[in-house]
Design a protein around this nucleic acid. Sequence first.
RNA 1: GGGCGCAUAGCUCAGCGGAAGAGCACUCGGCUUACACCCGAGCGGUCGCAGGUUCGAACCCUGCUGCGCCCACCA
Length: 850
Amino acid sequence: MYDRWVAAGYFTADASSEKPPFSIVLPPPNVTGSLHMGHALNHTLMDAMSRRRRMQGYEVLWLPGMDHAGIATQNVVERQLAGEGLSRHDLGREKFVERVWEWKAEYGGRILGQMKRLGDGVDWSRERFTMDENLSKAVQTVFKNFFDEGLIYRAERIINWCPRCQTALSDIEVDHNDDDGELVSIRYGDGDTAIVVATTRAETMLGDTAVAVHPDDERYAHLVGTEVELPLTGRRIPIVADKHVDPEFGTGAVKVTPAHDPNDFEIGRRHDLPMLTIMNERAEITAPGPFEGLDRFEARPAVVAALREAGRIVAEKRPYVHAVGHCSRCDTVVEPRLSLQWWVKVEELAKLAGDAVRDGRTKIHPPELGKRYFDWVDNMHDWTISRQLWWGHRIPVYYGPEGEVVCVGPDEQPPSGEGWTQDPDVLDTWFSSGLWPMSTLGWPASSSEDLAKFYPTSVLSTGYDILFFWVVRMMMFGVHQMNGKQPFDHVYLHGLIRDANGKKMSKSRGNVIDPLEWMDAYGADATRFTLARGANPGADMALADEWAAGSRNFCTKLWNATKFAMMNGASVAAPLPAAADLTEADRWILGRLGALVSEVDGLFEDFQFAKVAGALYQFTWNELCDWYLELAKVQLYQGDSSRVTATRSVLGHVLDTVLRLLHPFIPFITEKLWTALTGGESLVIASWPSPAAGYADAVADARIADVQKLVTEIRRFRADQGLKPGQKVASRLAGYTGGHESAIRSLVRLTEPAEDFAASASLEVALADGVVTVELDLSGTVDVAAERKRLEKDLAAARKELTQTEAKLGNEAFIAKAPEHVVDKIKVRQETAVADIDRITARLAALPAS
RNA sequence: GGGCGCAUAGCUCAGCGGAAGAGCACUCGGCUUACACCCGAGCGGUCGCAGGUUCGAACCCUGCUGCGCCCACCA
């Protein structure tokens, strides 16, 4: 079925169309990735939005693609090479990159096949990859533009360095965990000038170039400006005063290692301290001496031992939990490292990105999460964009023999001649994915039809967890490069998926639910519907097999209902009869259907997917199947031919509409059922329903509500009497004038009274316009004790109600201030309670003694 | 350390100023000619705790407790 949709071109967008545009770019999954629940959720919602818009007559583009995922992919291929006993250096850069492309061709993009399985209606003719020619051109163009405007610069700074991946990491590629460490106190200097510092990283003392204290700290005021001897090294280092130091912490004195700690780097800059690098890129000690060549974690105890030997440890090691940065890719402890990198200056860009949301060009749903967005854009640090990798967009900068630095634009020739070399680094993956909404639509070509038709995109849907990572970058790039035009009108943020106990899914916990397994077990439709039912904006959702089973049951229900209707001749061939020619049940369900369409539309516009799904579930099961189909049976089996024809038409129409409304969430089953029911080509290109006018009928609604109330009360009464559901009982419905008596009898198995009818039990049901007395001939089966028990329970409830309403109405302050409709409602409740008490009391009195 | 959010039926969640809701689970009764992946009936909650505002609070305010997430350069 999916292949037929694709082959028919339903998902292929036409940029020259006159229809209004609706566009979504798929957040590009990593080439190395495979479908997890988070994707399945996001894809379901994007698919639902775009299917609905397509049915509404929009020109829909849902653009798929993948991210080259620099570090992740390079790691995968390096691991593969390691299996062959090779490193990337054995191959050399060019061969290695070739190898990555081969890997991509063979193993990459597994997720694309999984997307088809889910039913994603994406435009495969426009599939993109961040390393495509045009996308690379976009990257180069932005780099050049930023370079020329001074928004990109090169500087030596402390960066997060992963000693295993051998590359710089941006802040967001570092995860902070609370790790156990040990705080060691070390005495620098001797005698009067001794000063004690505390550290968790003793090995870095080899690179200390100062000790810092707070300027107002009187304990050390006399030492500021003097020097102390740095143990183990023989070097003398100054004591400086810096406001960064917290006098309350530890001894109030800090060792300063400018080349290996971000804080110390800043102190070093302020005091013009030497930056002494004592570790190489593999985090091995390079300082000459006994520790040279040791890994940082070997060096730490070695240094401590040496210090102890020298009598420098003044306090025993103390356990200390502190936040430590880990590489988000390989979990290696990040080493702050002084290094020369390229940076994006974010201040101005972040302001542009913030303003676009502040002035409403881009709206964030749910709005509460907008605060987080501002927190981020208003406090952003400059962004390290160079990576010491081979897989990615190479930095388009060339260095000349005389120290020239030339940035080369996309259509320019690199400088040639002796001594020119290109920067070896590549750009952060987010640099290219940040351009995704523009670059995939053809930018920087100004003549791109896609760009003209589909930019700004309509909605960007993603989990709130990557609001900062990705959304903010797209906003910065988009607004800046497109003259203030935002990359998307709406940002919809869904929650994270958790397990049945609300715990985060993780491989180590072993509680991960694989959407592919769910699709095997319950089907793609049920998987999608489950996710949609849980999609409250910005709120996490807990998933368990039971939910999927429930959705599967719903799909089965829909299937059975449609099968039933078709078996009974449901059809859309003829137009719906005029309201006057329909029964009240018909008008009721059509009225409800119209209300449902409006409700669904409103909720969709507000991104309330869970509520859309809930409303459809409720209507289909509890109104259509539980009531209308049962009422329709009476017409189909007992009505005359015009009734039968009308009922078939209403059934056909209602199911036709329901299937259309459900199609965005449940595409496969609805397509199958709808084409069978209507003979139409495909639901994918069918029109979206509009609320049918002219059938809503308050009288019919009230009459059907009466039927529902009577039927429910009679069923309860029967159950209380211990009657089997199927057992037929003779009865009289005294005082019922609603016109649905035969339907009611059919639903609750009550036969017409025979000649020898003798009422042995009765039930009174209060309807809006009077009380109906249902008399049953139980011929001795009546359970008086059960009946008395039930009546006494009802009586107690009615008395409680009376007490409550009387108290309320006797409250003068309430009467004085409460709005009229509230007071009226309570008066009605009170009157009803009084009537109920009378009625029940009389019934109890009439009951034979047991 | 800072910020944000959540605490409502056994479970997962709606409701966000005017009588406590749904689905699942559970109990009871049913193979009633679409469906046992079903039908019908039922049980189940002082809406985290303590104050306050209001005629009225699950809903607004304050504090507390317990979770969760994001951000973060306290050695």
